[in-house]
Nucleic acid binder design. Structure first.
Lengths: 216, 216
DNA sequence: TAGTGTGAAACGGTTCACAGCG
DNA sequence: CGCTGTGAACCGTTTCACACTA
């Protein structure tokens, strides 16, 4: 089951990105089922709730090793736990927000994120009037303090919600300060400022385009 | 180039969903180039800025008919306009927000959306204390008035940012009231409440999972 | 000549159909 | 017997390499 690299080191089997994406969906639905007290679920039902085919679901899960019981189905709680572990959702992550605006404020106060183990431990801004304030229980630091605070608070993920400029500059600073990954929720795609840094562009307005296309 | 359906009616050539998604990216980068005064761009540069391969970009554009000039490149302004037309971004769309929370408020005040031609013309909530208020210049109606207001204001797209419950109920109401599409930005995937309604799930927390996976 | 447009090959993901197992 | 797990066939997307044209 486990693939080996040329040098025969065992490597994490490369999941297709789409599979990964679906895994995150499965987790959310499993959480709901779990909340509703369901103990068992069959691939057919879980697939329908997630909007995929049962074969797809079983194939996705089989990449990770069989979690189900033949003739029975999947244990909701156990599957949820396994998938979360694979997605890295079995521990706490420290986040920092770089650049404050409405969307950023909404994220800071979003209970879902902290329930998921994603905690904002700091915010950064370049505007005097924001520095030193506490918003949604998070302290706003000057950008100059970023390097120190990121190291001190063990921030691993930086979050951007602002436009370019200053998005690109903020990304560079975050990367310099030592975060390992950046989530860019701003409107414009950025490139990773440094080799080894993971940067994802996830513009909130993008799905609107898919809708307006479909409606045209 | 143009495909024909069995009955030989000309149909919009079905774009692969991934292509569509990339088109939206291209538009955003073209907007930036345009703002910066660039008139011409070659596939190699545009592709790099969008994080795809030049071959991919050219193939995507060739689905839509050749927009470029051999030996020269693409006219930034003209390509931007063409792509926007294809995505349905060449006109104004009326949106309604169903269920108010922090994320919803952030959307209402987001200038980018209105610059894109996406205008919130109404908001709906079930809580007495919200009804009748005006937030970010948008009036908050009771859910009972939805049917009337949606028709009157010609709302085509409904936007959800709330949890389930009441997300599912809100989706059903929107669909009943006559919107053609629903964007669910809430945490849990929903199914289209009715045949013919387009529903997209675009949970904001999803990209976080992809990052925590990559970092694990 | 430089860079687009595009068939054809290569790749990767999805679906199928059934073997395998509780 | 029922439902999962999975090799193999299928299908759509990406990449390649080059014909084409301003």
């Amino acid at each position: 089951m486990r693939k080996t690299s040329p040098g025969s080191f065992p490597v994490k089997p490369r999941l297709p990105e789409v599979t990964l994406y679906r895994l995150a969906f499965y987790v959310r639905v499993l959480e709901r089922l779990s909340r509703e007290g369901r103990e068992l679920v069959r691939s057919e039902e879980l697939a329908r709730l997630c909007g995929v085919s049962p074969a797809q679901l079983r194939k996705d899960l089989s990449y990770l090793g069989g979690f189900g019981v033949r003739g029975v189905g999947y244990q909701v709680k156990s599957l949820e736990r396994q998938l979360k572990r694979i997605l890295g959702r079995d521990r706490l992550w420290h986040l920092a927000l770089a650049g404050i605006n409405d969307l950023g404020l909404a994220l800071l106060s979003d209970r879902r994120l902290s329930r998921m183990g994603l905690r904002f431990v700091a915010a950064f801004d370049w505007r005097e009037e924001w520095i030193g304030r506490i918003v949604q229980e998070v302290y706003v630091y000057s950008v100059d303090q970023m390097s120190y605070i990121v190291r001190e608070s063990e921030v691993e993920i930086g979050v951007l919600t602002v436009e370019e400029p200053p998005a690109r500059e903020m990304a560079r600073r975050l990367s310099e300060a030592g975060v390992r990954a950046i989530l860019n929720l701003g409107p414009e795609p950025l490139e990773a400022p440094e080799e080894g840094i993971i940067l994802r562009n996830a513009d909130l307005t993008l799905p609107f385009d898919l809708l307006t296309y479909a409606l045209s």
